[in-house]
């Protein structure tokens, strides 16, 4: 019984570690996308793209 308890406990610890790791990776990914957005906006990247309707703002100035 005690062996079973310990085995279950170990699996839970490993799963917890894995979930925590994945959580950190996902939060990190969100932070990178957010940071990229800030960088792109601040360097003046195009804010709009073609969206099946005419967009005068996208036409380069003559």
């Amino acid at each position: 019984m005690s062996t079973f308890d310990r085995a279950t406990h170990e699996i839970h610890t490993r799963r917890w570690g894995r979930n925590l790791g994945l959580g950190i990776v996902l939060v990190g990914f969100v932070a990178v996308v957010f940071g990229l957005t800030l960088a792109k906006v601040s360097t003046g990247a195009n804010m709009e793209a073609f969206d099946h309707v005419a967009r005068p703002a996208l036409i380069p100035a003559e």
Binding site: V32, G35, L36, L38, A39, K40, S42, T43
Partner: peptide
């Protein structure tokens, strides 16, 4: 290259 873009690209 903007540092954030450089960092993300390397990543």
């Amino acid at each position: 290259v903007h540092p954030m873009i450089g960092f993300a690209a390397i990543l």
